[in-house]
Simulated scan of single mutants.
Amino acid sequence: MGRRTQAQRDAMTVEIGYALFSAAFGAAVVLGAVGGPALLFDLPRYVEKALLASGVLLATALFAVRVVSVLVRFDRTAGTQPSQPGRTNPDS
């Protein structure tokens, strides 16, 4: 693969930002949903620790999976053009 154009570099920068932002948002939601009750309610100490540890583990896993999946999907579609009405697809 040769040098990338400025538009390709800009598209990759935007995609990385989107991947990180959406992954961080999803991880925060999961952490709040799983670990939140430990902070809101008076639960036994071992239950609080288990909920917080589970929340952190799930949030970390979700973050990694989301970033990788967004960037892999972008890499697969980077060279393709969306179809245009009225035009013949070169692959047909």
Rank of each mutant, 00 (worst) to 15 (best):
G36D: 11
L52F: 11
Q81R: 00
A61I: 05
A19S: 05
P82D: 00
S54I: 03
V56M: 12
Q8A: 07
V68L: 11
F25P: 00
G86V: 05
G26H: 11
A64T: 09
R76Q: 14
P85C: 00
R9D: 14
F74E: 10
T13P: 06
K49W: 11
V72I: 10
L71E: 05
L43A: 08
G2Q: 06
V72Y: 08
T5K: 02
L39E: 14
F74K: 02
A27V: 07
L39S: 15
E48V: 01
D91C: 02
F25S: 03
D42N: 14
L71G: 03
L62F: 15
T60N: 09
L20V: 07
D75A: 09
R4Y: 13
E15G: 06
E48T: 01
T13H: 11
V34E: 13
A7N: 15
L39K: 09
V56F: 14
L57T: 12
F25M: 03
G32P: 07
G32V: 04
S22T: 15
R9P: 07
Y18A: 12
L39R: 15
L20C: 04
A38F: 12
F63E: 04
D75C: 05
Q84D: 06
G55D: 05
G55F: 02
Q8R: 06
T13L: 12
T77I: 01
S92E: 15
P82M: 01
L52Q: 10
F63L: 06
L40D: 12
A78S: 13
R4H: 09
A38H: 08
Y46S: 12
E15D: 15
R66G: 01
P85K: 01
V34P: 13
P44R: 11
G26L: 06
T88H: 14
V30P: 02
L39M: 15
T13W: 08
E48W: 00
F21G: 01
A78P: 02
L58G: 06
V56L: 14
R3C: 10
S83L: 06
V65G: 02
G26D: 13
R9T: 10
